[in-house]
């Protein structure tokens, strides 16, 4: 299903591809250039579940930022939802971020002066959803991540794991077609981690494309395949078969 390679494969923009990276390079100029990503090509099929692993500094977050339309590559093309991110203007990219992509940041990035509920409802504020409807939806999502009783807490009144779950709820609030999660389980105890991973599986089962960055093997193994990065390069792709592909889809 998924194709990968280091070459510059021309991608037919078939609707089956959610994300396509072609020879992507991201270089930071700090005295001597730092290649955060150094020629990565990768296709991610719609509705697939991909884990990204690699040592610290290997370019995982950089990759996520590109796919999440927050950043643009120095070279190469990033195609998200059929559109070349580099050719989109700022407004279109923002719309893509708001409607198509749900991003769970490695550092949560919650609004410090908004309550958990308001944080979850925030993306809908920018999609012109009414206040009542927003709150209802946010409450529902908080319930799903097990935080209904913390709806009115500020982020600094929540534990790390709770914050992470608020961030997750926020990423899901607009029903994105693509969910990007950067180390979503880093701060969670085993039990909550399992809950969150179950939630991912549930979304995956509902047709959402999932990309999850993790350091932990057992988290990565919930995905259909694992992409290994090393020093900004694609090291290898590990296919776990379709064993996981449909485990939730049927339920």
């Amino acid at each position: 299903m998924a194709t990968s390679g280091t070459g510059n494969e021309p991608d037919t923009d078939d609707t089956g591809t959610a994300v396509s990276l072609q020879n992507v390079r991201k270089t930071y100029q700090l005295g001597e250039p730092v290649h955060a990503l150094d020629g990565v090509s990768l296709d991610i099929t719609r509705g697939s579940y991909t884990a990204i692993m690699g040592p610290s500094g290997s370019g995982k977050s950089t990759l996520m930022n590109l796919v999440g339309c927050l950043d643009t590559p120095t070279e190469g093309t990033v195609i998200v939802d059929g559109a070349d991110v580099a050719t989109l203007d700022d407004r279109e990219r923002t719309t893509l971020r708001g409607t198509t992509v749900g991003f769970v940041f490695q550092t949560f990035n919650l609004m410090p002066r908004l309550t958990a509920l308001e944080n979850v409802a925030l993306p809908q504020l920018f999609q012109n959803v009414g206040r009542g409807e927003r709150r209802e939806r946010a409450r529902e999502l908080l319930e799903r991540v097990g935080l209904a009783d913390r709806a009115d807490h500020l982020p600094n009144e929540l534990s790390g794991g709770q914050r992470q779950r608020v961030a997750l709820a926020r990423a899901l609030v607009n029903d994105p077609a693509l969910v990007l999660a950067d180390e979503p389980s880093g701060n969670l105890d085993t039990e909550t981690e399992a809950d969150v991973l179950d939630l991912f599986a549930e979304f995956h089962g509902g047709g959402t494309t999932m990309i999850v960055v993790t350091h932990e093997r057992h988290v990565a193994e919930r995905a259909e395949r694992i992409v290994h990065l090393l020093d900004g390069k694609l090291e290898r792709i590990e296919d776990l078969g379709s064993a996981n592909a449909s485990d939730e889809a049927d339920t």
């Binding site: 999440g68 923002t94 971020r97 708001g98 990035n109 609004m111 993306p123 920018f126």
Partner: peptide, 16 residues
């Protein structure tokens, strides 16, 4: 600045 970044990341347009 950070809050602005967050809002933009979750879909706030410049004019908003």
């Amino acid at each position: 600045t950070r809050e602005i970044g967050i809002m933009k990341a979750v879909g706030a347009q410049n004019r908003e």
